[in-house]
Design a protein around this nucleic acid. Structure first.
Length: 721
DNA sequence: GTAATATACATTTTT
DNA sequence: TGTATATTAC
């Protein structure tokens, strides 16, 4: 392959990054500036020009999807498979190191991974055992605390608890950690922290990896947290060249520990050069102009301004809806026109701030007969039936896995109730035994009633039988046999309705996933099953089928990061929704909300619609939100206010919460709830409610002509009739 | 063990 | 308001 091909079609800045000398580098890559392309070409360049071996390349991403894409594109570019190259997620790569050095990490060879759900169950169990009131101390809080501390690289011994609250947190953290260690379990944060510690405490090992990975690349660096940064720094050592790619303006995960300041820290810690990619190949000039203007309201930016040599495009359309139903209907009708104009639905996306907003939209799509696909939600390997099956397989491979034991001991129901279980738990705690061995001991010591003892020993026999039987089978047969013999299949087959059918299908899907699974050759697993189990924990499985069906994409703004669509709707752009209520001025999270808005806007390639609703039913109550400040931050010449044509025009556009009808005036005027009233524009209706006081009061009227759904806030010009 | 009823609670999410 | 989970009743 001709080396110059690697630089062809790149702009100057991209070329600078790809062909830079071996040094530490920050590529500040704006949205749509071709950063993946740069990363991929850089790897190819290292191999072709710098004679780097595939073994020396280490590339880190946050998601499996990104890792997969990078690998594919590298292979495409080099026109050859690249074995030996480490491309993966922070967790995936750390896990790989832990597997290879489980002894140094003080983990059993068959250690298993706890996902957040497992972690929560584990904590709940622990809290019960420790007699901690679940009401006063919710398990979730502990989970959050533990993960946050681990993300900071802190073990219980590193933490000083100054108040009672933290003392409690610490106590549970310690107990939880002990329980995990005993059971050979690691949670997500533990994977990173444990890997970091292993490397740090084993200089020889560290040197080995430092020497091997001469070329490190990191994607989405603005999302790294403390431990990830420390881990990278450790691996990079003093001599390796590391290229990080990121965009401080797209940092939207501060709430889960990401440290935006890691980018700046990198510049000093690694004395790195900065290259800015500001040419955008995605959006129209108008969309970019508005996005740039918006993000300029943030302080402490590293500074970057996107530009394009493309078309100006259409203005951004802003729609003020009466309420969330109107908003949804607006979106669906626009999508209908889009489809009728010969476009594909899958080229359109609806973005919202929180998942709860999807429902009304979903209903509107259904009504309009438009196919849609909602991102997020339950993933394949997180489903109940799948986790049940995996728990059997885990227990077969690792009898110490208490989490798996708890999950399947009475699934399907085999007459082992709470009482028997607490016997087992007590014994396990007293003797410091894994639950499995405690159960065995209890049966042997005949501490149980006949029936319970029978049930428990039958369970023990079952697991041992499965282990015995599947040892010579291939992975697919192992899964099949386990799902059948455990009785899971029968149990879900007996479950009636659509749900049961779907679960059976999922179990079958799991078996075929086993069939398709390929054990990575260069990773150290003691069995294919071991590899598959790790795979299911680290790769939650994209889940939904029908991916090829033409459908509108619906997702939160967060999950839209990295994607692009010709047509984008950003809905619910109201104060209190976006920026969200809890991200107000005092919280110090406003800038992150603004970045989120920036991310949303820059998803749009051709056309962007932004909408807000004047009234919105939220948690059973009608809320009145003013348009988001973000709307005001978009330059006027980039936007166009639109309204749909109905017989009814909108209420006055501005000052709508001010005092045309004050509370006092309203009462004085003799209006009552249920009163029939006439509005100059909306016609006749019934007064439903009025609330607030003085200049803030609002009157809600249900207008006859608008249908019962149209609850409109009428601000003035009401006449009693 | 399941079904009915009470209660809490409600950004954002990958691994 | 609607959902997920906990508790209680059968």
């Amino acid at each position: 392959m001709d080396v110059s091909e690697l630089l062809d079609g790149l702009n100057d800045k991209q070329r600078d990054a790809v062909a830079a000398p071996l040094q530490n580098m920050l590529v500040l890559a704006g949205a749509g500036s071709g950063k993946t392309r740069v990363l991929v070409h850089r790897i190819a360049w290292l191999m072709q020009v710098e004679q780097a071996s595939a073994y020396s390349v280490f590339a880190v991403t946050f998601t499996n999807k990104a890792a997969k894409e990078m690998r594919n594109r590298v292979e495409e570019t080099l026109k050859a498979p690249v074995g030996g190259m480490w491309i993966g997620t922070f967790h995936g790569l750390s896990h790989r190191i832990l597997r290879a050095h489980h002894r140094e990490a003080q983990l059993p060879e068959s250690f298993q991974i706890l996902d957040s759900d497992d972690q929560l169950r584990m904590l709940k169990r622990l809290l019960k055992a420790m007699n901690i009131d679940d009401k006063k101390w919710p398990a979730k809080q502990f989970g959050w605390y533990i993960s946050a501390k681990k993300d900071e690289g802190l073990r219980p011994k590193d933490i000083q608890a100054y108040d009672i609250n933290e003392q409690m947190m610490l106590k549970v953290y310690s107990a939880y950690q002990e329980a995990c260690d005993r059971a050979g379990l690691v949670d997500f944060a533990e994977i990173l922290l444990r890997c970091y510690e292993v490397l740090k405490n084993n200089p020889t090992l560290l040197r080995h990896y430092q020497q091997r990975f001469a070329h490190m690349l990191v994607d989405e660096f603005q999302d790294t947290n403390t431990i990830q940064y420390a881990w990278l720094k450790l691996l990079a050592g003093n001599t390796n060249s590391i290229m990080i790619v990121g965009d401080d303006d797209q940092s939207i995960y501060g709430w889960r520990g990401a440290k935006i300041e890691n980018i700046k820290r990198f510049l000093t810690d690694f004395s790195a050069e900065t290259i800015r990619l500001e040419q955008n190949y995605r959006s129209t000039a108008t969309i970019l102009k508005a996005s740039n203007a918006l993000i300029q309201n943030n302080s402490e930016r590293m500074g970057k301004s996107l530009w394009t040599d493309g078309n100006e495009g259409e203005p951004i359309s802003i729609y003020a809806a009466f309420n969330e139903l109107d908003e949804a209907r607006f979106v669906s009708s626009k999508l209908r026109s889009w489809l009728n104009a010969g476009n594909a639905l899958q080229d359109a996306a609806i973005l919202y701030r929180n998942n709860a907003q999807s429902r009304v939209l979903e209903e509107a799509m259904l009504q309009e007969g438009l196919k849609y696909r909602i991102y997020g939600g339950m993933r394949f390997f997180e489903r109940q039936e799948i986790k049940d099956a995996l728990a059997y397989l885990r227990l077969v491979g690792n009898r110490q896995d208490d989490a798996a034991f708890e999950r399947v001991i009475n699934t399907p129901a085999r007459g082992i109730g709470d009482k028997t279980l607490s016997h087992i738990r007590d014994c396990a705690r007293n003797e410091s035994l894994p639950l499995w061995y405690a159960a065995k001991a209890i049966v042997e010591q005949q501490h149980l009633s006949g029936r319970a003892a029978g049930a428990v020993s039958k369970f023990i026999e079952l697991v041992e039988h499965i282990e015995d039987k599947i040892s010579d089978l291939n992975l697919e047969e192992q899964a099949k046999y386990t799902i059948q013999t455990s009785g899971l299949m029968a149990m879900y087959q007996a479950e009636k309705g659509e749900k049961g059918r779907a679960r059976v299908e999922n179990l079958e899907e799991l078996i075929s996933a086993c069939d398709q699974y390929e054990l990575p050759e260069d990773e150290e697993f003691n069995s294919p099953l071991q590899g598959f189990l790790a795979y299911t924990s680290l790769e939650s499985g994209d889940g939904q089928a029908d991916e090829h069906e033409d459908a509108v994409q619906m997702m939160t703004l967060h999950s839209a990061k990295g994607l692009e669509f010709p047509l984008v709707f950003m809905v619910g752009v109201e104060e209190g929704m976006f920026p969200s209520q809890q991200s107000n001025e005092e919280s110090g999270r406003l800038e992150e909300e603004r970045r989120l808005c920036y991310v949303g806007m820059t998803r749009a390639m051709e056309k962007l619609y932004v909408s807000h609703a004047e009234s919105r039913r939220l948690y059973g109550q009608e809320k009145y939100h003013s348009p988001s400040r973000f709307l005001r931050e978009m330059p006027e010449d980039c936007i166009e206010e639109i309204r749909i044509k109905t017989q009814v025009s909108r209420p006055p556009a501005t000052g709508r919460f001010s005092a045309s009808v004050s509370h006092a005036a309203f009462e004085e005027s003799g209006f009552n709830l249920g009163q029939r009233v006439l509005h100059a524009k909306f016609g006749i209706g019934t007064v439903l409610n009025y609330e607030g006081s003085g200049a803030q009061s609002r009157v809600q009227v249900n207008f006859d002509d608008l249908g019962s759904k149209w609850l409109v806030t009428a601000y003035a010009r009401l006449q009693a009739i």
